[in-house]
Simulated assay, not measured.
Amino acid sequence: MTEGEIRRRPGGRGARVRQAVLDAAVDALVENGVTGFSFADVAARAEVNETSVYRRWRTRENLITDALLAVSDRRIPVPDTGSVREDLRAFAALVVDYLNSPLGGALARAAVITVDDPELAAAREEFWRSRLELAGAMVERGIARGELRAGTDPRVALEALIAPLHSRALLTREPLDEDLPRALADLVLDGLGARGIGPASPA
């Protein structure tokens, strides 16, 4: 199947082939990490022609980024509760659930592995940039509703929210308990001087 065929039939066989390749890519990342990742291995796992994978993604870096984003989109959707405080609490809870899962933990390690290949490093940066940009909508909605000051930096807010979670998961290996998302969201928002949404409520 060619790239053109995949694009012309987004809900048909092309979509199934794309999903099979992305699932295979995730399995390959979990088992072999970023440095052991290859088109040939992914194509064999997905039972598709390697040239079809190449035509669609062009580089393994593109495929790695697409696979990581696809998993994140499914497992960590961006909440829209109508409250920036509840959005960030819910988002942090989803990140905790993801990092606590075998799949999420393995992919998190793959996403931060140190690599010498500049293209792999660029793929990792693109993954984080895309995720933070997408999740930044929570902060932007909070600004629009007057809950946060104009000029609040969405990326800084999100980094302050999720960095402690990844630090525990990848560095200290401390437990990610269910109370942590609420505590971190309240800490971030109180530090930003969130207004118009009331004080942090107890669990």
Rank of each mutant, 00 (worst) to 15 (best):
L68V: 02
E86V: 11
V53R: 04
A92L: 05
L99I: 03
E47I: 00
G82Y: 09
A90V: 13
V95K: 04
V96S: 07
I64S: 07
V71A: 13
Y54W: 12
S83F: 05
R55P: 01
G82E: 11
L94R: 15
T65D: 14
S52G: 08
W57D: 07
N62Q: 13
L99F: 02
W57S: 04
T65I: 03
V48Y: 03
V96I: 04
D80R: 14
V48N: 07
P77C: 12
F91W: 13
D87M: 09
D87V: 11
E47Y: 00
W57I: 02
T51K: 12
E86C: 06
E50V: 08
A46S: 05
D73K: 13
Y98F: 15
L69I: 15
S72P: 00
A90W: 01
R89P: 01
L63T: 02
V53T: 07
R75Y: 10
R58A: 13
S52C: 03
T65G: 12
V53E: 05
N49G: 11
R74D: 15
R56P: 01
R55L: 09
A92F: 04
D80H: 14
P77F: 10
P77V: 12
P79D: 04
D87R: 10
A93P: 01
D80M: 09
T59I: 05
A92N: 05
N62Y: 02
V48L: 03
R89Q: 12
Y98L: 02
V53G: 06
A90I: 07
L68R: 06
V71D: 15
T59N: 08
D73P: 01
A93L: 04
A93N: 06
R89V: 12
L69R: 12
A46P: 04
E47D: 15
A46E: 03
D87E: 09
L94Y: 02
T81E: 08
V84R: 08
N49C: 01
T81R: 09
R55Q: 15
L94E: 13
A67S: 13
R56G: 00
P79N: 08
E50C: 01
E47W: 00
A67R: 05
A93G: 12
V84L: 10
R55I: 00
V71N: 11
P79G: 09
T59K: 01
L94V: 00
R85G: 08
P79T: 10
R74I: 01
L68H: 07
R56A: 10
I64V: 15
V71I: 12
E50F: 00
V84W: 06
E47G: 07
